[in-house]
Design a protein around this nucleic acid. Structure first.
Lengths: 212, 212, 212, 212
DNA sequence: GATGAATGAGTCTTCATTCAT
DNA sequence: GATGAATGAAGACTCATTCAT
């Protein structure tokens, strides 16, 4: 446990530096100076610089994976939009809270290693696929207009990424507000037009009746 | 002219390597080996690695800037959606054609230098602002639903970035198709619902009547 | 302390090489090979080659400064000539003992850096000024003949420099002897005293009658 | 002849740069830029950088050799002191006129090459020997006090070198004046003649009574 | 475990010299 | 002869990683 705590401490310091300077410009000296440990000690806890970074990356990706929940259909489940909204809020909350990790993921996590690069690409790929599956389902259910769901999914993911980036930069704190705008944009982008002409409540009703 | 040609040749080779390995993993040796020039020759044409990269970056950014044209209103101008479509197609065409530069811009262009990082951030910021201004105008003209146009603009930019990224990876060639999907998604995301309920032709008419 | 010892060790080795090959022809590889340390180790103790050299230079200049003591007048002080003799002996002793540093100072210490060059020029300038002040005092006290003391001071410094250079080359060990000759020369010049006691015309006559 | 003129032109430009920056900090680019010739042209006239420098050095040394004339004894010759004075004036005139060459010889001509270094050392050695022979002759003739003529010769050479150095720095123009002071110093030292005519003990007494 | 001195492979950069035009 | 683009050996410096204490 002691060991894990020590690791965690170093990770915490390293995170800030990676976020600020990126992987390549950050060197071991920076990290050990900040973490106030000796050079050799670093290698007691991490195999090497890459290993440390990998762990940090795994942390964000895992956190994100946990917060992006698959849409559940069923009589006792909240309606899909509510579920999307919850996903989005959880993701935004994480990323605005963990600005450093966000920064690493969105800005600095590329160009080291085939492996790490691939891991991130893979993560996004899975997210896109998950969105795409939801959209396909939505089409089947008559909620989503027919379209190239792969592209639509990319648009949605990209939109979220960029908004998060901007929100982090602008140090926005109004997660709910931001989430709502993104959700609106995304839904209108894919929803069947008929569902949008009326007011929001009506649309919600339709959605619920569709899923229940 | 000779000189410019030589530079161009080196740039061309370097571009491919940067695209494949990223800035940090690319070293001068890679570049000169590929370009089949001597070490010293490299420094005859470029101050250093950064200088070369900077030029490559400037190239993409300039190309992109030229292809993203401000929306023009007026009796003799094509309707706004057509202009958006043209912008999008030009951008997509460039990026799918210049895969290497795209890759550099979307994947590897971060974490060198405060200066270079800032240059890219600045470029995107300007694009977002341009989109936002268009949206604001659209609201005034009754074409765009009221919303946080800053966020919507981010969504649009992010969507395009991600779609381009995926398209480059998938080696898609159907630019027009991709452009149409993105356009659809973006428009529906921001358009006033009333305009979307009908068929597309109707919407187009409305738009034209709005601008003419 | 450990650190200081290591530095000292490297300095000692570097000193010999600089003395033999001069600053420019000496490279880091020479130094680390001789000192039997790794390349990186060198940079642990010195910022760069210049930094190392600067320290060596500072060493000689400081040693010299300490050995050149200002003439003290007073009832309890040794007579001025004795003080000059002591200065001269201390300087000669140092330089014949530290042949390498002497070599560096007299032969190789020029043409690196405006800064280092200036430091040496400044040292010599101060020595000249100190000698000049002594001469001026000597004139006031009636011990020194009226003359351009600036030029005389330069002659004295130059004479000492050249003698040291020759003595180091010839590996002379008889410091006291050398010091005495230099002192004599400085005090009396080379002419036979008789020729100097009278007036100039008389001396000239003697000289002519001697040669004709 | 054309060729020789061209060489001369390049030499003239190179001289100034070598004087200002020294051998090592001067590069071919500096020289060809100043001489307004192409890089390849340089190598048409000189084998390499060292060759050029060697020639410059040979120039000064030859000029100096020509101006330092062996003392001639004989009924029709001017008296020895007059000959020394003439030598000194010729040397000073050259060096104050050719400041650049002087600078090179006194400050920058060391630490390239065993060969060049040796050439300069050899030149000075010969000058010292020549002075020494004159002094030896002077002793035989009863004009010079018995002393270690080798050391005295070094003192004289060193004095001249330093005075020239200072004179060049101070941009002095009064050659005759400077020559006279140096000559005086060399012949008479700095002590008041009265102190030297008597025996040493007496002089010491005088000195002590002066300070106590 | 903790330390920090030591390591050396890896890179960048300079610059005297060559050579095709 | 003149040019200047091309060359590549030489050398400086960095920094992730190891290892003796």
């Amino acid at each position: 446990m002691e060991r894990a705590a020590r690791r965690e401490q170093v990770l915490r310091h390293a995170k800030r530096i990676f976020a600020r300077k990126g992987y390549h410009r950050t060197n071991i000296s920076d990290i050990i100076a900040r973490a106030k440990i000796a050079r050799g000690t670093f290698y007691l806890y991490f195999e090497n610089k890459r290993d440390l970074f990998e762990e940090l990356l795994a942390q964000v990706l895992n956190e994100l994976r946990m917060r992006i929940q698959r849409l559940r259909l069923g009589p006792d489940e909240p309606n899909p939009i509510e579920q999307l909204r919850a996903n989005l809020r959880r993701v935004l909350a994480l990323m605005l809270e963990e600005r450093e990790l966000t920064d690493i993921l969105l800005n600095h996590a590329t160009g080291f290693d085939r492996d790490l690069d691939a891991r991130i690409a893979d993560f996004y790929e899975r997210v896109i696929e998950q969105i795409q599956r939801s959209l396909d389902l939505g089409i089947t259910m008559g909620l989503v207009r027919p379209c190239d769901t792969r592209i639509a999914a990319s648009c949605i993911l990209g939109g979220i990424k960029e908004v998060v980036l901007q929100a982090v930069r602008a140090r926005r704190r109004d997660i709910a507000q931001v989430a709502e705008e993104v959700l609106d944009f995304g839904l209108r982008g894919v929803a069947r037009p008929e569902l949008l002409s009326g007011d929001r409540a009506a649309a919600a009703t339709t959605l619920n009746s569709g899923t229940n």
